[in-house]
Amino acid sequence: MNMHAGNTEPDTEAELLARYAAGDPAAARLLAAQVTPRMFAHALRVLGDQAEAEDVTQDAMMRLWSIAPEWRTGEAKVSTWLYRVVANLCIDRLRKRGGVPLEDIAEPADPAPSAVQGMQQATRLDALQAALNSLPDRQRQAVVLRHIDGLGNPQIAEVLEIGVEAVESLTARGKRALKTALEGRKDALGFEDDTI
């Protein structure tokens, strides 16, 4: 079981999807409330662009509603399937960007300033996003899935359709690249104020 706070039991998601396919109008609302925040957060961290993240999330959810009648419980987890769809849509968008300079990509809006404990945390989130934007596409996806979305390596391997060893390699290289990207910003991020 994944211990990430935002995750739900996969069986619950499959059950809600089955209820949706059977015509239960409340099931869609419950399922959307459970999975949409995770998919939107992932898309936003990978793409670094609010509007594109919204488009990708809506597109992925439409594909989920579309496949609901044919969904076979037990073959795949709903959230894993959705992460895979979102990841592929994000890759498509990143490849279409091509040579767009990273500095031209809009920074995502700071999520709820009152909830991020002030300016320092907002600064840290901005610095992390800027560093994530500098990573190669697959490394960025792997790092976000592992360290922000909280997925295990086997599930990430399913999402990215690669082996577990390749996931470990991607996340390790991604973390090294993040450290390099954050080099020299240690003072600005105020780590010395932390008690950890």
């Binding site: 869609a28 959307a32 949409t36 925040p37 957060a41 991020v116 989130l125 992390l128």
Partner: peptide
Amino acid sequence: TLFAAARSAPPPVPDALMSQILADA
């Protein structure tokens, strides 16, 4: 610490996006 900051402050889903998703459903 940076990852934890990102995990603890997930971006809120815009109301318009959620409404559109439910309308699609």
